[in-house]
């Protein structure tokens, strides 16, 4: 991955977050939540800085980031698409819906379109099983989706 140069602003913001959690090693996960909320993802450069500030090794931070699926090291698209692959959605045809997204966007799971507009991911149960199969675009929930409806939804954001 290309090295990202962190701007002064970003560095200060991250330092601020770390000190808000008392720079305590036990708070690393909470810091990562906050930082990802702020910047969208956690590239290596951010992790290094967090490790420094929290007085733990970079490997420790990396170990946590890779352990928890909520944390991501790649930037999401402008409209992150998450297809629910929980059991309820799976048995109601989520896989077909996912296939259609892949085909329509020409990207695979975990990838972002070249123009940076869409990224595609799977997640497990968003708690709206009654609407299965469910897809999230950003924070918006789309329920009872069929492969046929996929194109229209994408068009809303194109």
């Amino acid at each position: 991955m290309a090295k990202i140069k962190l701007s002064e602003d970003k560095i200060n913001k991250i330092k601020e977050i770390c000190s808000a959690f008392g720079n305590k090693p036990s708070e690393v996960i909470n810091v990562l939540h906050k930082v990802q909320g702020e910047f969208g993802y956690l590239p290596a450069e951010l992790q290094d800085l967090i490790a420094q500030e929290m007085k733990v090794s970079a490997a420790h931070v990396y170990g946590i980031v890779t352990f928890y699926s909520f944390f991501t090291m790649t930037p999401k698209g402008e409209h992150p698409i998450s297809v629910c692959m929980g059991t309820a959605c799976y048995v109601r045809g989520a896989e077909k819906v996912l296939d259609e997204f892949k085909r329509e966007l020409k990207i695979g799971v975990g990838e972002t379109t070249p123009d940076g507009k869409f990224s595609l991911n799977c997640l497990r149960c968003v708690g709206a099983c009654g609407l299965a199969p469910v897809v999230l675009i950003g924070e918006k929930v789309y329920g009872r989706l069929t492969p046929d409806g996929v194109k229209d939804i994408i068009n809303e954001y194109r």
Partner: peptide, 22 residues
Amino acid sequence: YGAGAFVCGEETALIHSMEGNR
């Protein structure tokens, strides 16, 4: 806050996660 790892529902894993570890 949990961060999307099923095994963290297991109580010893959950405790380690709360302590800020994997």
